[in-house]
């Protein structure tokens, strides 16, 4: 039975999708934000693997077919962006400055907290690119000499937190303009947060996609400067 699960090409993918659907049902039934389908599905998958005694590599041998779609899906984020072209042309100033402010704030916050908590230089540069999309963040961490596996983990945690709390944070801090919401979500929690922005609205989603790319590029440049500060 166990061999059947570990050898199956479909087990990991099916488990992931079924877990996601369960999360979606749970969220609709309870109406509670904490039952975020992504969070619930990750928790269910980890629990099932732990109980069945299957390691991550075995699961991922099947589940990575889901990750395979990430590149084409990210490429497609340009489609809603293009559909909002007029908005883009009209508000480019607010967008560039909003994303710039987000990137700077992210780096400054990490710097200040790292200093306060006495992190080493290597730990600090590991966390510097935490707000940007995984692939760029990995590159930055590697370049600066950080622990790449931890960077990836922290980026994923950031994204999932953004996905769960984006709506709440916007509400509490009165971020109400759809463009501002999109910029805030994309700058703070990259593609995983953007998946939520897409659910909130077309404008929010499109602008959030823009923020992923621009914040990523800004961070590549700014993080190398910030790396010298601790």
């Amino acid at each position: 039975m166990r061999e059947l699960l570990t050898d199956s090409v479909f087990f990991g993918v099916t488990l992931s999708i079924v877990a996601y659907l369960l999360g979606d049902i749970l969220k609709k039934k309870t109406g509670l934000g904490i039952f975020n389908p992504l969070l619930v599905s990750v928790a269910i998958c980890i629990a099932v693997l732990a109980v069945a005694g299957i390691d991550y590599e075995t699961y991922n041998a099947s589940a990575h077919y889901l990750s395979w779609f990430l590149t084409p899906a990210t490429v497609c984020l340009a489609i809603p962006l293009y559909e909002q072209l007029e908005l883009l042309k009209k508000n480019w100033k607010a967008m560039i400055l909003g994303i710039g402010a987000g990137v700077l704030t992210s780096l400054v916050t990490v710097l200040v907290l790292a200093k306060l908590m006495g992190l080493s230089h290597q730990e600090y540069v590991t966390l510097l690119p935490k707000s940007i999309t995984t692939a760029i963040g990995m590159g930055v961490s590697e370049e600066l000499g950080g622990y790449v596996t931890i960077t990836v983990a922290v980026i994923v945690i950031t994204g999932v937190l953004g996905n769960i709390f984006a709506e709440l944070i916007c509400k509490v801090f009165h971020i109400t303009h759809p463009i501002a919401k999109g910029l805030a979500i994309g700058s703070a929690s990259h593609a995983i947060g953007t998946a939520k922005a897409m659910e909130i609205g077309e404008v929010e989603g499109a602008i959030s996609s823009l923020a992923i790319a621009v914040a990523g590029v800004f961070t590549v440049v700014a993080a190398s400067v910030f790396a010298g500060f601790l």
Partner: peptide
């Protein structure tokens, strides 16, 4: 440190980015 930095950063970044944009808009 990871938990503190992650939670704090997500709030500061969203507020900074969102409010700077909102102000200009």
């Amino acid at each position: 440190p990871v938990a503190v930095i992650t939670v704090v950063t997500i709030v500061t970044v969203m507020v900074a980015s969102g409010h700077v944009a909102q102000f200009i808009l």
